[in-house]
Amino acid sequence: MKKLLKEPLVHFMLLGALIFGYYYLTNDTEAPDSAVVIDDAEYDYLLSLWKNQWQREPNEDDIKAFLDQYIRREVFYKEALVMNLDHNDIIVKRRLAQKMEAVANDLNSMIKAPSEEALKAFYDSNQDLFKLPPNYTFQQVLFLKDEQNLSDRIESSKGALSRGEAIPKNRKRKLSLPNQWDNSSLTEISKAFGGDFAEALDSLPLNQWLGPVASGFGQHVIFISEKESARTAAFEDIKPYILKEYEFQTELETQEEVYQELLDKYGVKITSEKVPTSIKESFTNP
């Protein structure tokens, strides 16, 4: 039973029943379904909107005017519904689908905050999400693409650097980029050299001059002396972040679950021959 109570669909149905029930109980008017009803509640609402805008009491003309405006819209709205103008209207569809998704999200917040154990279990099973970026200590020497005999220069430079020769003066801070990077995070390296260069460091061996490795600036010869590999952050250190991730993930899951339940409820028949078979099957046999 406890498990059942946690099922989003159960919440969903309960909520639906509540809403339906509320309307059933409150809509006990005698007027035929087609009439535009202005009861006390509706009138008070319209009146307060008007007063809010104009900051005074309305006279009879004003009342006539705002009622006229309201009734006009309602009549058109009702007739539009009768004529099914809301059907297959992309804007109406999008809006209603959004509303349903919002209902699913609200459901998620009704499910109570996770216990310490649940959070720990989430952390344990999603270690990938909580990895620290690797840090690198490295040197780089830059060569520009329009340099003559570029590959020869790069090779001879690697040789010289491997023999312990210093970085030549004209390659110190070339294009302003520091040669030495100490304990630098992937974030910092990406900012300075671009993401591709930063990602490329991961697969390279330590303690040797190698390359070239490309960046948006040119070709780099590099020497990585230290790599602090991706490791998982300690639970206590990042608890608020884990909680946030947990809520985000469960929200998406709830939304997905509600979607799957509804998908089962309505079913999908793809009769068009033009849709590739594999895609068809992914919807009909998920």
Binding site: K131, L132, P133, E199, A230, A233, D237, Y241
Partner: peptide
């Protein structure tokens, strides 16, 4: 790559922790 997407965030969070 996907796992690294989270790297940036974590680094930042840790930057605010006292044990950095």
């Amino acid at each position: 790559m996907k796992a690294y997407l989270q790297f940036f965030l974590l680094l930042l969070i840790l930057a605010s922790c006292n044990n950095k």
